[in-house]
Amino acid sequence: MSGDIKKFMMVNRKAPYGTIYALESLEVVLIAAAFEQDVSLAFLDDGVYQLKKGHQTKGIEVKGFEKTYGALEDYDVEKLYVDQESLTARGLTAEDLCVPVEVMSRAELGKLMEEQDVLLSF
């Protein structure tokens, strides 16, 4: 596929399952990546809960999507940024997350946002 490659960042601030935002964001990530765009994901506030290991969604009869984060590598989506402050406020560390991420400060995340062509907030 030819054409301009743009820098997309999905900014994820919602917990999974309680609302549809997390799943919608993931779908948009996969679509943008299928069109070979330069995609990165930022997780802050309750968005960091999306990556918490060990989702077992059978009890609430909803399709779980933790495993899909593992496919991002196949889509060449390897830039996952997580806000340190948000993890700390939720008693989490990078070891609690289901995929490798880069943990950074909110200010550093903000700088990365400035570098994007398109920001999508979920």
Binding site: Y17, K52, G54, G59, I60, G91
Partner: peptide, 13 residues
């Protein structure tokens, strides 16, 4: 609610 704890991977904490 147990099912909601499990879905979010936090039933052990």
């Amino acid at each position: 609610l147990q099912g909601d704890l499990e879905a979010r991977g936090i039933s052990d904490r």
